[in-house]
Design a protein around this nucleic acid. Structure first.
Length: 649
DNA sequence: ATAGGGTTAG
């Protein structure tokens, strides 16, 4: 709990001054009540307070209560802590003089608590709440006001303590109390406590309203109990947009992007409409799934809607286009935003950086600074990672050194990760290690990970082994790290060690993620798994296109680079395996099913392998198609036999 | 009075 604060003792002085100055200016032509009310309504808090204070010689009555409530209401909407406190002190004085004790009044009390909470003065709110708590019954509304105060100020644990305290005092929680408690459980990611509150709710006589049900949905969605989500959703007497949003978010938590898009369509089918929250949620799904068509559909819906789109929605739209590799659309949306905020600039910058347009990224950064927007840590992560991917090591290093000096942004562990990645990728592993040694925080898994990747790129087996050990300790169940180490061994033809790594993985029950690629064609998403898709591969149309490609490639002199296969099998088998990589299946499928001349956009769940990278370049040349491949790491734009990454990846 | 959202790293 937050410690309670003792009452200040020097309260009389300010009160007297107020009384003196205020009573001069106002005579009570009208009854106190209506005068105070109209002043409070028009925001003249000083004058209203003056009248309250000067008229208090007589005992405060029930009619004054309404005026005080209105006055406090005005303070809350104006977030005026000072006026509220002056009224509070006035009531304290009046109580000490033996007048009726209005501070005990639950309505006023919860108003004071709310006011202090919205002003961020949570200690003051708590003091008001605790004053007189032990004297007798405190109604639920006061507890709830305090709970909301804690909740809005980020004290979720305290909300739960308070909820328990409420129960221990035999105060029946109402729907307000339930929803705040459930929200606190969600924030704390505490499914256990959430279930306890849910149980209380079932036992209570209170019929859960829509808000409570939505809070329950959110709790289970966020904690991954999806069976509960769908059960509650189906059983709810009525659903609104918020309920649907939670259902969609629930699918995202399970990484079921296609199902969540389906839920959005169902929502539209039921004529539920959408809010800007729905749009940002769904757009973020589109960017995760590289579902450019769906994303464009939503863009169209935004344009059709009569409301002017929110900056937040436009920022999400930019992110979607950037993550789909459609940087031109991203730029157009950016250009159309009237009041660009920091996120708009950062999204444009990130879009350029991940798509390999480092000059554009630098250009937009300069413009941003010129327009007086202060860059933040996200800005520099985007820039540094962009430099890293583009091999602009010196430029990136300079940026890193200047970010604090010129822009006042101090480097975090993520920025150090970019710097280490940048140096390692450029083959300057010694310098990268020096950075790890001098950086003021503990190196994260991602830092060791990028060092391991550098060892892979430059064939440094002994250092790779040392780093892998560190990494296995930090992230014991991340399959990528094991695969990376066995890659290093395979490149060095150390097949015994490759086998050893594979056995370790089996022993620890770690499975390598199967390579998987997907593309969206005419609104439908098609998924391909490495080594799978036999039906497709046996079809006549596949064979026709595949053979054409093989012929064209042989002419150019393409030979499969089989070292990417980590199993010790014959060269022939390796070649067959490589050709069954998921991104190739997806490419052939796209060549068959999309109009010639249109770009092909493929997404992959792993990093693209060296051989597929070569293959893609050639395909882009012989077919004249542009291929945009997004892997876990970055974008590759293949065009006329070249890749935007300039083979630096 | 109570429930819902976006940008960053290997």
């Amino acid at each position: 709990m937050i410690p309670a604060i003792s009452l200040p003792t020097n309260i009389t002085v300010t009160t007297h001054i107020t009384v003196a100055s205020a009573s001069k200016t106002h005579r009570h032509k009208r009854p106190l009540n209506s005068t105070v009310k109209s002043l409070a309504r028009s925001g003249k808090l000083d004058e209203a307070l003056g009248i309250i204070v000067s008229s208090s010689k007589s005992a405060t009555t029930e009619t004054d209560l309404e005026a005080y409530t209105l006055f406090l209401h005005a303070c809350i909407s104006g977030k005026s802590f000072e006026h509220g406190q002056r009224l509070y002190l006035h009531l304290l004085l009046s109580r000490d003089k033996g007048n009726h004790d209005l501070i005990k009044n639950p309505i006023l009390k919860s108003k004071f608590i709310t006011l202090y909470s919205v002003c961020g003065q949570i200690h003051e709110a708590q003091r008001v709440f605790q004053d007189g708590l032990e004297d007798g019954h405190v109604p639920a509304s006061v507890w709830v006001a305090m709970a909301i105060g804690f909740s809005k100020n980020g004290y979720s644990k305290e909300v739960l303590y308070l909820y328990c305290g409420m129960l221990s005092q035999y105060v029946q929680p109402d729907n307000f109390a339930f929803s705040v408690a459930l929200k606190a459980c969600t924030v704390l990611f505490d499914l256990c406590a959430g279930k306890a509150v849910h149980a209380q709710l079932i036992k209570s006589t209170e019929e859960p309203d829509q808000v409570v049900n939505n809070a329950l949905l959110r709790l289970y969605a966020e904690c991954g109990s999806f069976d509960e989500v769908s059960r509650i959703f189906e059983e709810m007497p009525q659903r609104n947009i918020v309920s649907w949003n939670s259902l969609i978010a629930g699918y995202i938590c399970r990484k079921q992007v296609f199902e969540s898009l389906g839920a959005f369509r169902r929502m539209q089918g039921e004529r539920m409409g959408f809010s800007w929250v729905t749009l940002t949620t769904v757009l973020s799904i589109c960017s995760q799934a590289t579902a450019l068509n769906s994303g464009k559909e939503i863009h169209a819906q935004i344009l059709k809607s009569t409301r002017k789109p929110d900056v937040l929605v436009l920022n999400s739209l930019m992110d979607m286009y950037a993550k789909c590799g459609a940087i031109d659309y991203c730029r157009i949306v950016f250009g159309g935003i009237e009041s660009k905020d920091l996120t708009s600039w950062n999204s444009m910058l990130t879009g350029y950086a991940v798509n390999g347009c480092i000059q554009d990224a630098m250009g937009i950064f300069n413009k941003m600074v010129e327009s007086g927007i202060r860059p933040d840590e996200v800005t520099f992560i985007a820039l540094l990672s962009g430099c890293s991917h583009a091999g602009r090591t010196d430029e990136g290093q300079r940026l890193f050194n200047n970010m604090w000096k010129h822009y006042g942004v101090s480097p975090t562990v993520e920025h150090y990760a970019c710097l280490v990645d940048m140096l390692g990728r450029a083959g300057r592993i010694k310098e990268a290690l020096e950075v790890v040694q001098i950086m003021p925080m503990r190196p994260s898994g991602s830092i060791w990970g990028s060092l391991l990747n550098s060892c892979r790129l430059y064939g440094n087996v002994p250092l790779g082994e040392v780093i892998a050990e560190q990494l296995f300790e930090l992230e014991p169940s991340n399959p990528g790290n094991y695969v990376m180490l066995s890659n290093i061994y395979a490149n060095a033809r150390m097949w015994d060690n490759v086998k050893l790594v594979r056995e370790t993985m089996e022993r620890r029950g770690i499975k390598k993620e199967a390579g998987c690629s997907w593309i969206q064609i005419k609104g439908r998403t098609h998924t391909f798994v490495a080594g799978g898709g036999f039906e497709f591969r046996n079809s006549a149309e596949y064979k026709k296109v595949w053979n054409e490609l093989v012929d064209a490639m042989e002419e150019i002199g393409y030979v499969p680079r089989t070292e990417v296969v980590l199993h010790d099998v014959s060269e022939e088998t390796k070649a067959i395996w490589v050709c069954g990589h998921s991104e190739r299946l997806a490419t052939v499928f796209a060549l068959i099913h999309s109009a010639s001349g249109t770009p092909i956009r493929i997404t992959k769940n792993l990093r693209v392998c060296v051989d597929c990278h070569i293959w893609m370049k050639i395909v882009s040349r012989v077919t004249g198609r542009m291929i945009v491949l997004r892997d876990t790491n970055r974008f590759h734009h293949f065009k006329e036999g070249n890749c935007s990454c300039k083979d630096y990846w």
